[in-house]
Nucleic acid binder design. Sequence first.
DNA 1: TATGAATGAGTGTTCATTCAT
DNA 2: GATGAATGAACACTCATTCAT
Lengths: 177, 177, 177, 177
Amino acid sequence: MTEKKEHILQTALRLFSEQGYERTPTSQIAREAGVSEGLIFRHFQNKEGLLAALISLGKSRLYPLMEQVLAEQNPRTLLAQVIDLPVKIISQEKAFWRLQMSLKQIQGEDAQNSFLSLQPLYLAVVQCFQKLGFAEAETEAQLLFLTLDGLSKALMAESAFDPEPVIQLLKARYQQG
Amino acid sequence: MTEKKEHILQTALRLFSEQGYERTPTSQIAREAGVSEGLIFRHFQNKEGLLAALISLGKSRLYPLMEQVLAEQNPRTLLAQVIDLPVKIISQEKAFWRLQMSLKQIQGEDAQNSFLSLQPLYLAVVQCFQKLGFAEAETEAQLLFLTLDGLSKALMAESAFDPEPVIQLLKARYQQG
Amino acid sequence: MTEKKEHILQTALRLFSEQGYERTPTSQIAREAGVSEGLIFRHFQNKEGLLAALISLGKSRLYPLMEQVLAEQNPRTLLAQVIDLPVKIISQEKAFWRLQMSLKQIQGEDAQNSFLSLQPLYLAVVQCFQKLGFAEAETEAQLLFLTLDGLSKALMAESAFDPEPVIQLLKARYQQG
Amino acid sequence: MTEKKEHILQTALRLFSEQGYERTPTSQIAREAGVSEGLIFRHFQNKEGLLAALISLGKSRLYPLMEQVLAEQNPRTLLAQVIDLPVKIISQEKAFWRLQMSLKQIQGEDAQNSFLSLQPLYLAVVQCFQKLGFAEAETEAQLLFLTLDGLSKALMAESAFDPEPVIQLLKARYQQG
DNA sequence: TATGAATGAGTGTTCATTCAT
DNA sequence: GATGAATGAACACTCATTCAT
């Protein structure tokens, strides 16, 4: 990966998340990345290829976090860690997730799933609720993921939203089940 | 409102919600609405004007539902009705709400708010929680709205998502507070 | 001539002279004249017809002034009156003459002639110079008309140009021939 | 400056001066220049940018002629050279000056000035008249410039106008002052 | 006479993409 | 790998003009 290729990726991520994919011309990416416009196409074939590269890059940075959570044995601790994920992830890679959220209508099935399209996590959470004796573990997991999805959206809206109180309330609900 | 003007509005709403605002050319709207392209601009000034007309139209259809909820006196009943709102609203005007959700990056402050940007409702819900003796009424209301926001998003993803179980679980949680 | 038709003519003259013929849409004329756009075409067939009506109207207001000059018997007095014409005419119908001057490239032969395309006047001036014993009466007349043409242009440029001194100098030149 | 860019400039100059700026679509320029329409905007940003490029180009070709006149020491010779300028300039770059004259209403202050918007020349001419002992040097210079302005206009009207006699008469007037 | 909804060809401009160097 | 000139299809939008009422 040459230096210029990385410049392109960084710049594209920033601009896509600020302005949206459609509203960002390749010419602007090239200009702000300090490269020629042709180079973008040499490296990524076309504009969608650049987007795809960005998404797989983002996912690869995400998996470590996810696997760390999945390794947790104590169900209550795992739930708490899942609840902490949105803040952790989004504060870390805000630009990437804003991009992700803006793609619903461009991409097919993938990006539009609940929460962060983290199905392995969903299965683990269902098991947690079962272990903890919840009657309807699946529904309970769905509800939690919906909530975390809403929380993610709020976090990315960039407003002065403070997630801490909500997160505490949410954790409390499951700790004393 | 002439017949052709309404054709334009209907067609635009459908196409915007299917393909997104940016990916829908005015030429396509005109063609599928069976009118000349110029007529769009005669009636709505520019493409954004068409979008604005669509949004204010959608909101005007929404207010009756909202006011009905706000008139409710019993706090538990009001909460239950708020929880029912996403399904009611979205099944009724799915296209409009998919459009609404796709606009975060185009519009300014308005559309990006939580849930359905229904602040009056938020205030009413806070009061409900206070009446019901919840310790942190505001945080509780925020949490509920985040959840309903996530629920709305899931409902609009058009997949075979069945909201009923989640809604029952959510209602149960507040009825026995 | 109905009141609305006159409104159209007035407004068109003002806008054409302010913005130029090409840069003035019929929709603007209609709006500022307080009539429907269709009425313009009912009365004048098309945009060029409106222009033609304006021009012939302007000319008809001009002929009296011209004939008054042509009736003058004394050659020196006639020359002085010719020299006074630009100021008289332009201060009286500035808008019309600015329109006239902006049309060189639109219209054919007519408007692009020297001075105010007043050929009868030209012939009279040639005769004056002959009577006064000028060697090259035709050339002398041409030179005078070129100068008056330049003067007209300067007068219409709307700047703080004071024509009086120049006019005095010009008159003096021919009075003492 | 690539070959195609120059083709665009040449073609635009010709078409603007023949048809006027407004009546010349960029599509026609592109077609007749044998380039794609997009290239015009790549090189000149927008249609006005093309016009501006044309104007500054024309001016840069004009300054040498002007400075040559300004270097003249003998006031009578300088006046004669000033009188010769319109024919020299316009026969040389007719297209450019027709364009220049057609812009009064588009551009701001610059192009609408008297003669060829050559203020340095005006100041030199005033000095000439002072040296030659004319009573009202400024007014005399104004009058000369008005005349040259009218002469320029006549020259550009493309008709079979022969400027030679007028120029001789004009020169004679100042040589025997 | 007068309106105003409606048209459709045309306008300037954008932009992803190609290609010779 | 990298450039930048060049393309051409698409786009939002304008505007003179028509026509039913």
